[in-house]
Design a protein around this nucleic acid. Sequence first.
DNA 1: ACAATATGTCAACTATATCTTGCAATAAGA
DNA 2: TCTTATTGCAAGATATAGTTGACATATTGT
Lengths: 71, 71
Amino acid sequence: MKNIKLKMARVEKDLTQEELADRVGVTRQTIGMIEAGNYNPTLNLCIAICKALDRTLDDLFWAEDQPETDN
Amino acid sequence: MKNIKLKMARVEKDLTQEELADRVGVTRQTIGMIEAGNYNPTLNLCIAICKALDRTLDDLFWAEDQPETDN
DNA sequence: ACAATATGTCAACTATATCTTGCAATAAGA
DNA sequence: TCTTATTGCAAGATATAGTTGACATATTGT
């Protein structure tokens, strides 16, 4: 499940994946995979992304139709 | 920083750490460390915990005074 | 005092998030 | 066409999330 909300929040801030990655302290690949959806980031990284994009966890990482309850 | 909101949501549901851990698919140690605050869980685990406790990410894992922007 | 339940903690292990490097593909501009 | 910027993807390495098992410490009930 691609994280389209994250991508939209990023482009709305006019940031590239690499710029966001720099601000958040990870590599652009990590951001890319989170947006692509085949990834399970840590909470601290999610929070850092939210703060970089002026959003909250629910804004970017919460979906009403959550996929599975796997850890 | 201890996650007191998580602990309160759990006891409000009358669940022990072990019961919550079972429902979420992790060990009780993992739940314990998240509540103790010296841990950085994955997003999927946070979501599973939220669903088990009928809360959202912002409810349990978002704080206005976020500690550090480390990943 | 005793037993059972719930939690904290520690060490060693396994699984996986994240990094590093590199290459390919696409789109936009000169 | 050529270049540059942006993104996708993949293999191997490292850091850390999560497991397992065990023991200690409350706490509560009998």
